[in-house]
């Protein structure tokens, strides 16, 4: 009985090389030795050689026609050869743009607040109350306008609309309040604070970020009555002429210690988008502006359509022609 298990992979390798007459003298000697040792290998070799002979004897067919190209065919081939990759790349680029737009929106919607702090912010209330008290003269009315619009340095958060923190020393404001599972950080400059030395000296917590807490705790951490009591200056101090600060004033955009009390700018620089103040409309309708996106919906639909159409044309040129 022939035992198949005696044949090793090396034997099969040598057998195949032998069939193609490509054995080296050493390999030939090794293979001959194995043929004498293993009858199954000998049988296998004979069968394989017969198979190879049969394969080599298969008839070679004549071509049914010449496959040469005419000038017209050649021109057509070149044109199609140019268009196919063009449509392929156009389809790919359109699809990538669509993916980038949707992907980036998905990411930013999850991790960032696109809306500034809402007017429910206790800090805003405090400022508005301050300025309402201070609106005795025309000049103070101008100051009120500035004061009621804090300059936002950072407005970031996720999970929920945050509540602003307590006003900071030197006019810096900041704070963060979280809803359950979310956190919000809001750092801004409140120009109104500089008009009162008392406030400037008493302010605390500039730039502080409140630890992440649950919403219930967060609300109770800012007792509404505590904030105005701490922050609202006395009637006399608000009515008084602004006094130059004795200590070194912080260098903040729009505030010059020598020109304290005068309005330097009524509007932020148009090219500095980070310091852009939120409009009241935006503040009130935060949810609406949150849904706005950079890329118009028409452009998105156009890109998706382009990706599909270009892809179909590419597919047609590649497989159907």
């Amino acid at each position: 009985m022939i035992r198949q298990e005696n044949v090793t992979s090396r034997d099969l390798e040598l057998l195949n090389i032998a069939l193609d007459h490509a054995l080296t003298p050493q390999e030939q000697a090794e293979f001959n030795k194995r043929l004498t040792e293993c009858p199954y290998l000998t049988t296998l070799f004979q069968q394989q050689r017969r198979l190879k002979d049969a394969m080599e004897q298969l008839p070679c067919y004549k071509v049914p026609r010449n496959f040469t190209l005419t000038r017209v065919e050649a021109r057509k081939a070149k044109r199609a050869g140019f268009l196919q990759p063009v449509f392929g790349w156009a389809s790919l680029i359109s699809a990538l743009l669509v993916a980038v737009i949707f992907g980036s929106e998905l990411i930013f919607r999850n991790v960032s607040l696109t809306v500034p702090m809402s007017s429910d912010n206790p800090q805003t209330y405090a400022v508005q109350e301050d300025s309402s008290v201070a609106s005795n003269t025309g000049e103070e009315a101008g100051i009120k306008t500035m004061a009621s619009a804090p300059i936002y340095l950072l407005n970031w958060g996720y999970g929920a609309t945050g509540l602003g923190g307590i006003g900071g020393k030197g006019g810096g404001g900041g704070g963060g309040v979280a809803e359950a599972g979310g956190v919000s950080i809001n750092i801004y400059i409140n120009p109104n604070v500089f008009y009162s030395e008392e406030m400037a000296l008493e302010g605390a917590g500039a730039g502080e970020i409140a630890p992440e807490t649950a919403m219930d705790g967060a609300v109770s951490a800012f007792p509404e009555e505590a904030i105005p009591e701490q922050e609202v200056p006395s009637q006399e101090s608000l009515m008084a002429t602004p006094i130059p600060l004795e200590h070194e004033a912080p260098r903040i955009y729009g505030i010059d210690t020598e020109k304290a009390g005068t309005i330097l700018k009524m509007t932020p620089d148009s090219n500095d988008t980070q310091l852009e103040l939120p409009s009241e409309e935006e503040t009130r309708t935060g949810q609406e502006s949150e849904s706005k996106s950079i890329v118009p919906i028409q452009v998105r639909i156009g890109l998706v359509a382009a990706a599909l159409v270009f892809g179909l044309v590419w597919w047609y040129l590649k497989f159907k022609r």
Partner: peptide
């Protein structure tokens, strides 16, 4: 194009026979 067609004529039979054995259909 003439040079190209000359190359095609040289190898078309080999190409057709390889294709025929792979496809099993003329």
């Amino acid at each position: 194009l003439d040079a190209f067609n000359q190359l095609v004529l040289t190898y078309q039979e080999l190409a057709y026979n390889v294709a025929y054995r792979i496809m099993a259909d003329e």
